Lab assay of single mutants.
Amino acid sequence: TTIEWNGTKITVDNPQKAKELAKKIAKKLGLTVKVHGNTITIE
């Protein structure tokens, strides 16, 4: 699972952990999480 935001890509083996990490990042930055299959985008 890949997390993408602002040109940065982070690959996380565990999809559940990836989703939790994305939510934490999005919350800190005041952004939203969008899931597209194996890609999680923070916008």
Rank of each mutant, 00 (worst) to 15 (best):
38 N>A: 07
36 H>I: 11
24 K>A: 12
23 K>A: 12
40 I>N: 00
41 T>W: 14
14 N>G: 05
4 E>W: 12
30 G>A: 02
13 D>P: 09
27 K>V: 08
23 K>P: 01
40 I>D: 00
37 G>T: 02
17 K>Q: 10
7 G>Y: 10
17 K>T: 09
14 N>C: 08
28 K>D: 10
30 G>I: 01
5 W>N: 04
4 E>S: 10
40 I>Q: 00
34 K>A: 07
33 V>C: 04
41 T>D: 02
38 N>I: 05
28 K>R: 12
6 N>M: 11
7 G>I: 10
22 A>P: 00
20 E>S: 10
20 E>K: 13
24 K>Q: 10
12 V>L: 13
41 T>V: 13
26 A>W: 04
8 T>N: 15
31 L>G: 14
10 I>N: 01
27 K>H: 12
19 K>R: 12
7 G>K: 07
21 L>N: 00
30 G>R: 03
30 G>T: 02
7 G>V: 11
15 P>K: 10
4 E>D: 09
32 T>H: 10
28 K>F: 11
7 G>L: 06
27 K>L: 14
13 D>W: 15
3 I>S: 06
14 N>A: 03
29 L>R: 04
24 K>T: 07
27 K>R: 10
43 E>N: 08
9 K>A: 07
2 T>F: 09
15 P>V: 10
34 K>L: 08
6 N>V: 08
21 L>F: 09
14 N>H: 06
26 A>P: 01
37 G>V: 03
6 N>I: 08
6 N>K: 09
31 L>R: 03
8 T>K: 15
10 I>T: 02
37 G>P: 02
14 N>V: 03
10 I>L: 08
26 A>S: 06
22 A>Q: 01
30 G>Y: 02
8 T>L: 15
31 L>I: 07
18 A>K: 00
16 Q>C: 04
32 T>L: 09
12 V>N: 01
17 K>F: 11
31 L>K: 04
26 A>I: 04
22 A>V: 03
26 A>D: 01
40 I>M: 03
5 W>M: 06
9 K>Q: 10
23 K>I: 13
42 I>M: 07
28 K>Y: 12
32 T>C: 13
16 Q>S: 10
8 T>W: 15
6 N>E: 09
29 L>P: 05
25 I>V: 03
27 K>E: 15
7 G>C: 06
13 D>E: 13
7 G>A: 06
1 T>C: 11
35 V>R: 04
6 N>L: 13
22 A>Y: 02
8 T>E: 06
40 I>G: 01
2 T>I: 14
6 N>P: 10
13 D>F: 12
37 G>K: 05
36 H>W: 08
42 I>S: 00
13 D>G: 12
25 I>S: 00
7 G>M: 06
2 T>R: 03
43 E>C: 11
17 K>G: 04
24 K>S: 08
26 A>G: 05
32 T>K: 12
19 K>E: 10
22 A>E: 00
28 K>W: 14
4 E>K: 09
36 H>C: 14
15 P>S: 07
11 T>I: 14
15 P>A: 11
41 T>R: 11
42 I>H: 01
5 W>T: 04
8 T>G: 13
8 T>V: 14
16 Q>N: 11
12 V>C: 13
29 L>M: 06
33 V>L: 10
4 E>G: 07
9 K>C: 14
12 V>D: 00
22 A>M: 02
40 I>V: 05
13 D>A: 15
5 W>I: 10
7 G>E: 07
19 K>L: 15
28 K>G: 04
35 V>K: 03
13 D>N: 13
42 I>Q: 00
27 K>W: 06
42 I>A: 01
41 T>G: 02
2 T>D: 07
20 E>I: 12
37 G>N: 07
5 W>E: 03
31 L>A: 12
12 V>H: 02
1 T>M: 14
25 I>M: 04
25 I>P: 00
37 G>M: 05
23 K>N: 13
22 A>W: 02
39 T>W: 07
33 V>F: 08
19 K>F: 15
28 K>C: 08
24 K>G: 04
21 L>M: 09
15 P>D: 05
19 K>H: 14
1 T>E: 05
30 G>M: 03
29 L>A: 05
40 I>H: 01
39 T>P: 00
3 I>L: 08
25 I>F: 04
14 N>M: 04
18 A>V: 03
42 I>W: 03
15 P>M: 14
26 A>T: 04
29 L>S: 06
36 H>L: 10
4 E>V: 13
33 V>Q: 01
4 E>M: 10
30 G>V: 01
2 T>L: 10
25 I>D: 00
38 N>H: 08
40 I>R: 00
24 K>M: 12
